[in-house]
Nucleic acid binder design. Structure first.
Lengths: 252, 252
DNA sequence: ATTATGCATTATGAATTCAATCTTGCAATA
DNA sequence: TATTGCAAGATTGAATTCATAATGCATAAT
């Protein structure tokens, strides 16, 4: 597993699959990627999935060895992650993974709810008939997964619906801002993995949302989606604070 | 002016006033700063004020010489600015200052309006009586500046009011997200400097907003502030697209 | 004359090196 | 025995060096 070479040499570097320009997929956009961007993506995943846990100090040397890169791109990536709120940089003391507090997660969901409300309002105005048809298709797909209790698939389609509505807002800034928040929200959801089920209620809310969009009732769609996201947040928070208050510092 | 020393030496670096821990102000938080953070701040100002103009390629070597630093902190700062949308990084081709398009600016104001609406709704619930008193004080101050046609002071207090309402939301994520957008919005406003006056209408809207907040009518306050920000955006856009369509690529 | 190709120059991305700061452990003293 | 001061070690932040990709120009070929 990428033997921890002790630097000093000429052919260091490419220990991992990083760098390769995505072998399989279409060659269309020969977008060259930079190392720091790949590293940032990798670190993001590690933090979301808990491979780098809350409050963990980021050991630069160790991570460099593990990833097969030098410190420069890693440190560049850390700057980006810091501006995304995933790590905090303590001058002369390195980086540490930010802790998810209850109040912080509540704030995240509150803003996400506001952004999705905005997106729904705009989508109700700007979505074409084809877009609504696509949403209906997704809704039906989700209902099937729900009926069959296929949790993972349900979750994926659910996420897809939210992303679609965001995209239908036709506002790039909204999309980017939302994406940034979602990385942090995924962290919280990943933690609260266990019992964050809210299947039935969530399904109903999605149905009502779709109807409001079809009726081009932006105000109603906005409120429905906002409250839906807020309830999701409450469910996640309940798990975080609830039974297993292990890792999660609640910080009243 | 920080003689462009040709590297090689021991006492390079501190050409500029950077680094000093803010001599005057209270010593309370002995917060140490890092070079890349200072550089990022400096670059932000340069971009907002147009010292680095739209579409300008960022010459690393040149800037390093000008700022009296080496490339590493500069490049780290550029990564941060890229994630803030102020520059874009072209792999192997360096950084370039992003261009403000009409659609982009419209999107910025749309999202800012949504965030401020959210803030107003929350502030109406969460603000204490003392906070409202502070807002009244600011409003009166602004009215005085308005009456006296003191443009700069009016503008400053106006900004202060918006920031205060954002803060009264009690939501840190909202505050950070809004701040990130505002950097870009300031860019647009700086460009449209000339005739973005909307004094009288703006004043009236602010008064109504204050009344709604005092009445704890969150929904109304939210809508008022949202529309106020949207109108400001329209004014800025009008100037951008209008008479002097010089620098600003409109990009239909 | 115009376009294509190859070379030289330049600048970027990443690695490595260097210096300053922080941490840790031990010892000395109260 | 606890606390403070000091020194050694470790780690960060920044500078410098190195390798590679991009750009521009000159030359040659059509």
């Amino acid at each position: 597993m990428a033997e921890t070479r002790t630097t000093k040499g000429s052919d260091v570097a490419q220990g991992v699959s990083l760098r390769l320009p995505r072998a399989g997929a279409g060659r269309a956009a020969i977008r060259r990627r930079t190392l720091h961007a790949d590293v940032a993506e990798r670190l993001r995943d590690m933090i979301v999935q808990g491979a780098l846990a809350q409050g963990d100090r980021v050991d630069e040397k160790g991570l460099c060895a593990a990833l097969g890169i030098s410190r420069t791109p890693l440190r560049e990536a850390l700057k980006v992650l810091a501006s995304e709120g995933l790590v905090e940089l303590l001058p002369n003391r390195g980086a540490r993974v930010t802790e998810l507090t209850a109040t912080g997660v509540a704030a995240l969901f509150e803003v996400a709810a506001g952004l999705e409300r905005m997106a729904a309002e705009l989508a109700a105005e700007r979505a074409g008939e084809r877009d609504l048809a696509e949403l209906r298709r997704l809704q039906e797909s989700m209902e099937r997964h729900h009926a069959a209790r296929r949790r993972a698939e349900y979750f994926r389609v659910n996420q897809r619906i939210h992303d679609t509505i965001i995209a239908l807002s036709g506002n790039d800034v909204l999309q980017d801002t939302h994406a940034a928040l979602m990385t942090n929200i995924r962290r919280a959801r990943y933690q609260a993995n266990a019992t964050q089920e809210r299947w039935d209620g969530s399904m109903r809310e999605h149905r009502e949302l779709l109807h409001a969009l079809e009726a081009r009732d932006g105000a109603k769609a906005g409120l429905l989606l906002r409250d839906h996201v807020l309830r999701t947040g409450e469910a996640v928070l309940a798990v975080m604070q609830g039974p297993a208050a292990d890792e999660t510092r609640t910080e009243t």
